[in-house]
Structures are given as structure tokens and as C-alpha cells.
């Protein structure tokens, strides 16, 4: 049997919203350590890797390792029925072909239970090599979302140039071109508003802005986003999921033909 309870069910709903544009169905690997998921988009240029550690759940029980094929589209629809302060329990009974989502209101006056049929999905776990990135930009996730949305108006690609002083996002297309430059914060009251850059080497990389905008669907999970970059290496875009884990998106850069 598998059972995991989250006092703040809305966190799980945000995780699903963060994934479901990039991947519509995926295999959840459940073990004693927690839940992990790894999936590529249909064109194989982007990958998402999710980790939710067992100690982040209010209660967690996993008697044996399980691979659960789940439609994220359907799960998202079911989670829309959850109240914003509801507690969420995810359960898979032994020998069952369904996952049960139970929602309980904070005043414990309302209980809802939904079953979603599990799917038989092909899955293979691909290893992502440990990378010592040349540059890590940390910035407010709302700011990153706004920049990606704005850059998409100008073109299909966004070039991210990072130096020790700042990071510049630029796009050009048929309608014109533009860029936004953020300087490294020197003095901020709140850490979550800061832009900080750890840099060994300056980088300039170009990405399909459409994917960056899909990654930004996970921005409500975290005040800050980490963008880790090296020349000729996929971008790693990371949102923390509270203290319990993270969503990491990987995206191959665009290169000159």
C-alpha cells in the first residue's frame, strides 16, 4: 500500500500545474524515500525531474516500490475540485489499478474522494550527469515569468547572457527586438526579491522561449528560480518545492545551423 498525506494539498496541485503543460502523462516512482518523476516532452528537447521527499509529507507510507502511470491532465482536473486549504491524501491500495485522491476541508466538515485509473506507460530513467555549471542565476520567479512572457512577444528564441554584474535576456523577431537587463542586487530587504549571480565564466545561450514559458507554470511553487548554465550544455531551471524537494527542468540550447 502507498499512502501520503499533505496538510497543504495546494502544494501538490501546484506541482501538477507546473508539469502538465510539458508532459501530459508520466510515471511516478514511489519508494520509501519519497516520490520522483522524470519525463521528457514529446519532442525530446526538454526534461522535467521532480523530487518530493517522504519527510515533507505529514504522513507517508510506502510498503513496496511502485511505478504509477498517471495522466497529469486528468489529475489536474481532479485537483481543481480541491479547496485551497484542503488536506490531500494520495493512496494506492495493493492490487489496485487506481490512485485515490482524498480531500478534507480544514474544518473537517467536508470530505471528497476521487479515483483515477492508472495507466500502463513506457518509462525509462535517463541519467543526467552531474554538471559543474559556469553560472547560476538566482532571481525572483515572478520576474522570470514576466520576462519570458514579454520575450515571447518579440520572437521564438531568447538569448540569456550572464556576466558577473548582471544577466541580460534578449529576443528578436519579425516585429523587432528587445532586451531586459537585471543587475545583481546589492542591497535588498527581502532575500526573495534578490537577483544573485554565481559565476565562474560568462555564458551566452539561446533557448526556445516557448519551453521557458512552460517551465514558468511551476513558478507559483517558489519565490525564487535558479537558472544554471554552461556553454553547450542544457539549461537547468529549478524551482524548490518548499523544504520537501524540487522541480528541475532541463532544456537543450538552440544552436546556429
Amino acid at each position: 500500500m502507498f499512502e501520503a498525506r499533505l496538510a497543504q494539498g495546494s502544494i501538490f496541485a501546484k506541482v501538477i500545474e507546473g508539469l502538465r503543460e510539458l508532459v501530459t502523462e508520466a510515471t511516478w516512482e514511489c519508494s520509501g524515500n519519497g516520490i520522483t518523476l522524470q519525463a521528457m516532452d514529446s519532442s525530446h528537447v526538454a526534461l522535467v525531474s521532480l523530487v518530493l521527499r517522504s519527510d515533507g509529507f505529514e504522513t507517508y507510507r510506502c510498503d513496496r516500490n511502485m511505478s504509477l502511470g498517471i495522466s497529469l491532465t486528468s489529475m489536474s482536473k481532479v485537483l481543481k475540485m480541491m479547496g485551497k486549504d484542503d488536506t490531500l491524501t494520495i493512496r494506492v491500495n495493493d492490487d489496485s489499478d487506481a490512485i485515490v485522491l482524498s480531500m478534507e476541508s480544514q474544518n473537517q466538515e467536508e470530505f471528497a474522494e476521487y479515483e483515477l485509473r492508472l495507466m500502463d506507460l513506457d518509462s525509462e530513467h535517463l541519467g543526467i550527469p552531474d554538471t559543474d555549471y559556469s553560472c547560476v542565476v538566482k532571481m525572483p520567479s515572478t520576474k522570470f515569468s514576466r520576462i519570458c512572457r514579454d520575450m515571447a512577444i518579440l520572437g521564438d528564441s531568447v538569448t540569456i547572457c550572464s556576466t558577473k554584474d548582471g544577466v541580460k535576456f534578449g529576443a528578436k523577431g519579425d516585429v523587432g527586438q528587445g532586451s531586459i537587463r537585471l543587475n545583481q542586487s546589492t542591497n535588498v530587504d527581502k532575500e526573495e526579491d534578490a537577483v544573485s549571480i554565481e559565476l565562474r565564466e560568462a555564458v551566452a545561450l539561446t533557448f526556445a522561449v516557448r519551453y521557458l514559458n512552460m517551465f514558468c507554470k511551476a513558478a507559483p511553487l517558489s519565490n525564487q528560480v535558479n537558472l544554471s548554465m554552461s556553454e553547450d550544455t542544457p539549461l537547468m531551471c529549478e524551482f524548490k518545492v518548499g523544504d520537501m524537494g524540487h522541480i528541475r527542468f532541463y532544456l537543450a540550447p538552440k544552436i546556429e545551423d
Partner: peptide, 14 residues
């Protein structure tokens, strides 16, 4: 002309 490569090229999955 910019082209989009697959992740497999970078991560030696081929």
C-alpha cells in the same frame, strides 16, 4: 538560422 537540438545529444543517451 537557429536549430533546436534534442537533449540526448548533450547527455550521451544515443
Amino acid at each position: 538560422q537557429l536549430i533546436q537540438c534534442k537533449l540526448a545529444i548533450y547527455y550521451d543517451w544515443l
